[in-house]
Each structure stands twice: as C-alpha cells, then as structure tokens.
Design a protein around this nucleic acid. Structure first.
Lengths: 194, 194
DNA sequence: AAATATATTGAGACAGTCTCAACTTAGCAA
DNA sequence: TTGCTAAGTTGAGACTGTCTCAATATATTT
C-alpha cells in the first residue's frame, strides 16, 4: 500500500465515503471563498459532520489540499510534457510558467503553501511540488539549450518566480502577477550582445 | 495633534511609559524570533504586563509594527533622497531596491504586511508604505528619464517586485530573494535594440 | 440477528484574540 | 502629608480556532 494513497481508497464504508466526498466539496468551497487558511471547523460544519470526522479523513490541512489539487497538478505535468514538443522553446517556457502561475492562483494563500512544500520534505504536498519542479526543469533545460535563457537560471529560480508573482497577485491584482512574471522571465534571458 | 502620533506621546504617566517601552522591546524580540505573527499574549507575558495593557497601548498588531518600523522606514526615505544624487540613475534604482528589500526582510511575514498595507488605506502602516513608494517613484522617474528602465514600469511594479522577492526569500533563502530581485530589475530594462 | 470491524461524535485540553468592569496607583493640590 | 482623581492596569470571560480520544453508533459480514 503506497504511503500517499490516491483519492478515496476502495473498501471504504459507504457512510465514510459519503462524508469524505462531502468534506472535500465543503473544503473546495471554503478554500475558494476564504483561502487555504479557511476554518476546518467551519468546513466540517458545512459538510454536516463532526470535526473529528474531518480529522479522521484528513489528518492535516495539507492532506485536504493535496486531494483538491491532485487533478490540477497532474494536468500541469501533462502541460509540461506537451510543451516539450512546442516548436518554440521560448514560448514553451513562458507558456508553462503562465500555466503554473494560474495553478498557484487557484486559492488565496496557495502560493505560500506551494513554496513551503517544495522546501519541506515532510509535507503532504512535497511530492506533487517536486513533480511540478521536474516538469519545469525539462522545459527550462530545453530553453537553455536554445539559448533563450541564461545558463545560470535554475528551475528553483523559475519556481520561486512563479509563486512570488502569484503571491503578489493575491495581494494586489492578477494583472500585477502577470507583470511581475513577465519582468522576471524577461530578466532571465541572456544578455543581448551574447 | 496628528492622528498618527509618533513614539510615546508626552504627558504619559511614568508607569505607562515604562510598560510601553517594555512592550516594544518584547515585541521586537518576539517578531525577530517568530515573525510578525508572534503571539501578542506571549509578548505581554515577556514584558511582564497583562495583555489588556498591551491592547491599551497598541490597539492592533500593526500599531506595534508601526512603532518598530518607524526609524527604519524613515531611514529608507533618506536613502531614497540621497540616491537621487547618485551619479548613476541605474545604480540608484538597484541600490534603492536592495535597501528596500533588506528592510522588508527585517521580520518574517513583514513583506506580506507591507504589501497588504500599501493596498489598504485604513492600515496603520499605510502612510509609511506610501512614503516608501513615493521615494521609489522619484528614483524610478529618474531611471526612466535616463532610459535605463522601460517607460511602462510603474513604482507599484517595483514595490511589488521588492516585496515578492523578500517573500520568496523568507520561504527559501536570502540568496533566492537576491536572485529574484535581480531578474526582475533586469527584466525592467528597455529592450536592447531600443 | 448477532458479531465486529469501521466510522462518527462531541466534549475537553489547549492557544490565541480582544474587551471591559473592577481595581490600583501616579501625580497633583490643599 | 494626605487625600483626590485622572490615568493606567488587571485578568476573567466571551470568542474562534486546532486537534485528540474514549464513548458511541452503524455498515457490513457471517
């Protein structure tokens, strides 16, 4: 049995499965409305279960977040794979960065979680973030090979830029996030005369 | 009498003044150690007063932060003024950005507060942040005039970049903050062929 | 219709924010 | 020096929130 089990494992009792789904739905709404720091108590209330039930299904806030993000993150990995075939290594990178930033913007406070999770190996979200980073790495390697990005730019730099821009966007506006991302990516290009 | 009174107003009773100073000192330590979200209860405890006393002196966390940052922010304004005389408009901008980022790094979580405060006019920190922004504006205007920065770059962009980089640094490393700031500033330069 | 493995419950321990009526005390004036 | 009073302090109490776990309930199996 894998440590990071995917969605509801089979063999769940019917009532358990129902509560699990309700909790997930309530969490989705709450996170969308109040950000990832939404009250877990309130989520349990909305789902119509006692808070102990929430904790038994999702021992941590991140476990809840992990479930809610699973599909999206998988999609992001596929996007990365697809973009490797894009005719322009340059557009592949900017396109991927934009997609990743859109993902980091799904809930308020998410960028912070994603940034923390890539650092913290014990985080429930760590593996998923690593996968995203790996996807970025391949896109970046190609861009570097095509000399559309400076040689000293790391995947961590790109990951940090994406989340930092998403974070700034949370505090101000999506347009600001977009601008910051553009400036950052622009600044990663090789010096003109090169 | 100004609405935003500076440090301890005169006419304070001796015990009040003593407690005020103790609270400030305790807050400084706590913020340095645990970030700007440090427990106010704990700060009162460390200062040796009841928490009601803390709230009577500093109605909000931001009021406390405002006091602790006052000197630093003033210094930043002076730095901005000095840099207007710097021979290189380019170096003036990067130098100012670095100074501002160092400031935003004083306590964990501070970048978030600074970013929120520039948006929120009701914030205790708003005026101070506005002053910083205004300082940046002048430095930026000069850099634009010297054509070392693109014409469409705003002071808000620079402010956001500084805080976003500081934020990223909190989650990872000071070096990462530095790199992000560099990329961003680099991306703000006019296109080479211009 | 038990038996039992699986889930759910909600009180309770804890930490934090913030308020306010009751109390204490510094500083002044007689 | 002695009171008086404005100024300041106190800490219990009303909240909200996290997280745990013994008691209880229920879905499934036999």
């Amino acid at each position: 049995m894998p440590t990071t089990g995917p969605a509801p494992q089979r063999k769940m009792r019917a009532d358990a499965r129902r509560n699990y789904e309700r909790l997930l739905a309530a969490a989705k709404t709450a996170f969308a409305e109040h950000g990832v720091e939404a009250s877990l108590e309130e989520i349990a209330r909305q789902a119509g279960v006692a808070n102990g039930t929430l904790y038994s299904h999702f021992p941590t806030r991140q476990a809840l977040l992990e479930e809610l993000l699973r599909d999206r993150m998988q999609a992001l990995s596929e996007t990365a794979r697809d973009l490797l075939d894009h005719p322009s290594a340059d557009e592949a990178l900017t396109g991927w960065a934009r997609a990743a930033m859109a993902h980091a913007t799904a809930y308020r406070g998410l960028a912070t979680s994603l940034m923390r999770s890539i650092q913290d190996e014990t985080s429930r979200l760590h593996a998923a973030c690593q996968a995203v980073l790996a996807g970025g790495q391949r896109i970046l390697d190609r861009a570097r090979a095509a000399a559309v990005v400076r040689g000293d730019v790391t995947a961590e730099d790109v990951y940090a830029l994406i989340n930092a821009a998403a974070w700034a966007g949370e505090q101000t506006s999506p347009e600001q996030a977009e601008r910051l991302l553009s400036f950052g990516l622009e600044g990663m290009r090789p010096p003109a005369g090169g």
